[in-house]
Nucleic acid binder design. Structure first.
Length: 369
DNA sequence: CAATCGTGGGC
DNA sequence: TGCCCAAGATT
């Protein structure tokens, strides 16, 4: 190592130059890369559809959570063309439970945009990728690098952690993002941008972890600035975040004689946009007795004991639940529909609503894919 | 820039 | 248990 660095310094590359960390990371990656369903094996050409689909699903979502959804999507929508041709409801249903539902809507729009392109192929250029729905700075760089081996530097949470530690960047997130991006871009090895991007993510996910990083196993442990001072766990610095206030509401589970349940579809934008829900009140900052007036129809409502708690990213929610049984001929309230018991599993029900139904004793059987 | 937008898992 | 976090994008 020392010899190589010394030699390099005489060929106009300083010993502490840009290539050294990338070489170390790539050598580590060649031995320790994770095998993932969407990742090409060494020597294989990556499939842009798989890369894109996985990158969208992995936004703010763990590998463990994504894996089954990714497999299911590939089965149901084997190509971009198939995904583009599918009805929106099918896409939302396949996404239900994964969270951040605007991703599903943008995924569908992006598939249609790509399918409409010449040859139905993804653009290879980072700037063109960035223009597609649901593809932001990170994902554009990730697809360009991983699917097409373009020189690009995707910066996700893993990379932010590795880089802020390696350079001991004191500036707090999110203000430090431009500096982190510049530092990362300067490290990208032109021959292997895709491997470098994935290597940095693997490093952050398995070695340079948020808590108790395994510095002894890290290929960058020597030159890592944070490690030298023993402060690795204190990076990245983060601006304090404020927590959302508790909200309250009421939900109404209305079961028809044949077991059908009264549902409606939420507005396409905003929280749980486009997803199915049981009728309910607004969610307010204090418990509101008037919430019970939001019942979708007149019936013998029984308030169920207990409460459904749910935590969104920016606020916690407590939902009181009422249940009623109604006759077979009960008319459908405006904006609602009867969902047959057997097809509840085929509804785009977010987990909050699955909790509510479970609380009310309604079973949601998974419908075969 | 700051808010909004889900869910599950780990410690 | 409560808090932090996870391959961010959009407005």
């Amino acid at each position: 190592m020392v010899t190589a660095a010394a030699t390099a310094s005489k060929t106009r590359r300083p010993a502490t130059g840009a290539a050294a960390p990338a070489d170390a990371v790539l050598a580590w990656y060649d031995r320790h890369r994770r095998a993932l369903p969407w990742r090409a094996r060494p020597g294989e050409r990556p499939d842009p559809y798989r890369v894109w689909l996985s990158e969208i699903m992995l936004q703010q979502t763990t590998v463990t959570a994504v894996r089954p959804y990714f497999e299911r999507f590939l089965t149901r929508f084997a190509t971009v063309e198939e995904l583009a041709a599918a009805p929106a409801e099918a896409v939302m249903q396949a996404w239900a439970g994964l969270g951040y539902y605007s991703r599903a809507r943008n995924l569908h729009a992006c598939a249609r945009a790509v399918a409409a392109r010449p040859g139905g192929r993804f653009p290879e250029d980072e700037a063109e990728l960035l223009a597609l729905p649901g593809i932001g700075p990170y994902t554009a760089a990730a697809i360009a690098a991983i699917a097409f081996n373009r020189v690009a530097a995707p910066v996700d949470g893993n990379v932010e952690r590795v880089i802020t530690r390696f350079y001991a960047i004191e500036e707090a997130l999110p203000a430090a993002k431009p500096a982190i991006r510049a530092r990362t871009a300067a490290l990208v090895p032109p021959p292997r941008p895709g491997d470098f991007a994935q290597a940095m993510m693997d490093l952050g996910a398995t070695i340079c972890t948020p808590k108790r990083p395994a510095c002894a196993l890290c290929p960058l442990t020597g030159p890592c600035a944070a490690r030298r001072s023993g402060l690795q766990e204190t990076f990245p610095r983060k601006a304090p975040k404020r927590e959302g206030a508790l909200r309250h509401g009421a939900a109404f589970v209305c079961v028809r004689a044949d077991g059908a349940v009264l549902l409606r579809t939420r507005p396409p934008r905003g929280l749980l946009g486009g997803m199915a829900e049981v009728p309910g009140s607004d969610w307010t900052s204090s418990p509101n007795p008037a919430a019970w007036a939001a019942a979708p129809l007149a019936a013998r409502w029984r308030r169920l004991p207990g409460i459904v708690r749910h935590v969104f990213t920016h606020f916690p929610l407590e939902l009181a639940v009422a249940r009623a049984e109604v006759a077979q001929g009960t008319p459908v309230p405006a904006g609602c529909r009867w969902a047959p018991a057997a097809s509840l599993g085929g509804e785009a029900l977010p987990n909050l609503m699955r909790k509510v139904l479970a609380h009310a004793g309604v079973e949601v059987r998974p419908v075969d894919g």
